[in-house]
């Protein structure tokens, strides 16, 4: 009897030990892979505090003599404007674009998901078709259109199409999300006396919140990172957003001041990172519930 108890205890101990070992292994592997993926980012942050000469002389990411020189000089830029101006420009594009996208895509998705109207199938089919269409194809016709409208060298071509539900991906994502919500609540609201718009505002939008947050996040990050759009439509330096401004510091100086570029790169990704971490919970809820896996 005591032997048996002893044996049991031994087995339990062994099992616990094995579990610990396998957990340990798992964490080591995950940590290693995570490090490999994060290393460029860590290096970027480290190198932004180095002097220009140290960047190329030491491979490590911890600066020997940390300096803010890169940030100070980078912020000043080689143009008459500081980097703050470019951030402000980015903000002026992102704000109307994100808000406009959220409102317009919600309206369009609500229509597709909940109402029957003539040619609905064809229209929704064309939304999907736009989703599959390569962006490059429409660049030139769009450029000509905006040129004729006299919108060149303004922010309008960068945000107006999106604010008119031009981003088929977001419409599609919201339609899918809405389809997963049972219509009973909306029917209850109609019985309670709501018209379609009131139902949308009081009932649908709150339920759609996680998906809407994802939409705003995606739009925010994609706009922040968009390089081609501003490059095509903006020609005056005073209207450049940060994505273009970064490039600016590369080709206007003969010897590249890498530490300035890296310092400004760090600043550029900071807003996106902050926003992502703040809204992470909703973001994941939004994309997984909508069936669009990120």
């Amino acid at each position: 009897m005591t032997d048996l108890t002893h044996l049991n205890a031994l087995q339990t101990r062994r099992r616990v030990r094995n579990q610990k070992i396998s957990a340990g292994m798992r964490y080591v592997i995950l940590f290693a892979v995570g490090l490999v993926m994060l290393y460029p980012l860590i290096w970027l942050v480290g190198a932004s505090f180095k002097t220009n000469s140290e960047i190329f002389s030491s491979p490590g990411f911890i600066p020997a003599e940390p300096t803010l020189e890169g940030y100070r000089q980078g912020w000043e830029t080689s143009t008459p404007f500081t980097f703050g101006r470019f951030f402000w420009n980015s903000f002026l594009i992102i704000l109307p674009k994100t808000i406009g996208t959220a409102i317009s895509c919600t309206l369009v998705a609500y229509g597709f998901a909940r109402f029957d109207f003539p040619f609905k199938k064809i229209l929704f089919g064309s939304v999907i078709a736009i989703l599959l269409l390569p962006n490059v194809v429409t660049r030139i016709p769009q450029y000509i259109l905006f040129r004729d409208l006299g919108w060149l060298d303004s922010f309008l071509p960068l945000w107006v199409p999106s604010a008119m539900a031009g981003d088929a991906f977001f419409v599609f994502m919201l339609v899918q999300f809405l389809r997963s919500i049972p219509p009973d609540m909306e029917e209850a609201a109609r019985v309670d006396g709501c018209n379609s718009l009131q139902t949308l505002i009081y009932i649908v939008v709150p339920m759609l919140a996680p998906a809407l947050i994802s939409v705003c996040l995606f739009q925010f990050m994609w706009t922040m990172n968009d390089f081609l759009g501003p490059l095509i439509y903006l020609s005056s330096v005073d209207k450049y957003p940060v994505s273009l401004a970064l490039k600016l510091s590369i080709d206007t100086t003969e010897a590249f001041e890498w530490n300035r570029i890296l310092a400004m790169s760090v600043l550029t990704i900071t807003p996106a990172l902050i926003v992502f971490f703040v809204a992470q919970r909703y973001f994941i809820e939004g994309i997984s519930a909508g069936g669009v896996k990120g």
Partner: peptide
């Protein structure tokens, strides 16, 4: 007439309470 103007109230099978 829209539902709100029919002087009716409805109780749904899965309650349909507004979740938020």
């Amino acid at each position: 007439l829209p539902p709100g103007k029919r002087s009716i109230a409805m109780v749904f099978q899965n309650y349909a309470l507004y979740p938020h």
